Computed example of a mutant assay.
Amino acid sequence: MVSDFAPGSYRFIPAVFQYSSGAAANPGFEVERVRFDRLVPLAEGFARIASHIQAAGRPLTAFCACELRSPAAVSEQGFRAFNEHYVKTLAEWGLFDGSTNPVARSNVCPEIDPPAEPSFYAFSFTRPSTGTSPSFVIAGGAEARGGAGSYPERIVRYRDMSPEAWKEKVRFTVGEMERRLAEFGFTWQDTTGVHAYTVHDFHPHLADELVRRGAVRSGLTWHFARPPVVDLEYEMDCRRVLRELVI
């Protein structure tokens, strides 16, 4: 069920404490995406994000999504430890109340030339708009089912790299993106950007599992990167953003 985050002028899909499953601008507002020309370490990145949002005349609660790059995939325990550190700044900004987090996020690990520490690649925030076109960011999702249980228990075809397993992994992840889009009342036809993150060749399943389902109407950007938790192999995210900037 979609929830409203009035201080940020957006609504979101509740998920886990470290991020939401997606954020969409409320009527009268739009999402602006800002990508850093070079990766910026976490602390410096938060400072630059705050400066940019405030210079636009917006409160820090307008921060609605971010894209991170990390040195390497970590264990489930390591992932939680990182997230507990990450959300401290969100709490200071009035975004995280200790349990609910409205900010959507992707966090992946470049296989070649990774950063030395977790860093920001891009971020998004809401700003007033006179347009009527919707805008949103769907958070990164990999081939892990929701609910209770460890990652090994929830990963689709855990440690299975066979062609049949890969088809299931891609199909599951595409389906999860569709589910999140539908929560907001959107489909692939509403997206302006779709990303895939993996170091494996998923092209044998590209036509049937993505193209035929309409997922690449605006093309597909493949990042040669791993999902953030060991044994996850394929991640995606998507968005509809009409205003993008590189700084």
Rank of each mutant, 00 (worst) to 15 (best):
P27L: 10
G175K: 04
R159Y: 00
G219T: 04
Q18Y: 12
T221L: 08
E117G: 05
P163N: 12
F82K: 07
N107A: 15
D237Y: 07
Y234H: 01
G131H: 00
F46W: 15
P71G: 13
T89Q: 15
M1C: 05
I155A: 14
F46G: 02
G57N: 08
V87Y: 05
R240C: 00
I49G: 03
A6L: 08
A116Q: 14
W188M: 10
T100A: 15
L232W: 04
A23G: 13
P128K: 15
A91K: 15
W93K: 06
I138C: 04
G8Y: 01
R217L: 06
R159H: 01
I247M: 10
R171D: 13
W188L: 04
S99E: 14
N26Y: 01
P204K: 11
L42N: 05
R180M: 04
W222S: 04
F184W: 04
A24K: 06
R213V: 07
P227Q: 06
G141A: 10
P115N: 13
M161P: 00
A23C: 12
I112K: 14
G219Q: 07
L39H: 10
R171H: 13
R48I: 11
R157A: 14
M1Q: 09
W93P: 02
P163F: 11
H85M: 08
L210R: 00
E209A: 14
A104G: 08
R145N: 01
F224D: 03
T132D: 11
L220C: 11
R213K: 14
P14R: 10
V108G: 02
R33L: 03
A165L: 11
V229G: 10
I155Q: 11
N107I: 13
P152A: 09
S99R: 15
T130G: 11
V170Y: 05
V103L: 07
P118E: 09
V74T: 15
G8S: 05
V174N: 05
H195M: 09
G98T: 09
F172E: 10
G28D: 08
A72G: 10
H205A: 06
V199I: 09
V74R: 07
A104R: 05
A65D: 11
L95N: 00
R58D: 07
E183W: 04
A25R: 04
A65T: 11
L220R: 03
Q54N: 08
V108K: 00
F29R: 01
A139G: 06
T187A: 12
S135A: 11
Q77L: 09
S106K: 05
R239D: 08
V174L: 07
Y121N: 12
P163W: 13
R48S: 15
A91Q: 14
S106F: 11
S99A: 15
T126P: 06
L245A: 01
E84Q: 14
A25Q: 03
P163C: 13
D208V: 11
G131N: 10
F36D: 10
T100C: 08
D160L: 14
E183P: 00
W166S: 03
P163L: 12
N26R: 13
V156R: 02
G45Y: 02
G214T: 08
M161D: 15
H52S: 12
P228T: 06
A139R: 02
E76P: 02
R145E: 04
P14V: 09
A139Y: 01
A182E: 12
F63W: 15
L245R: 09
T130I: 11
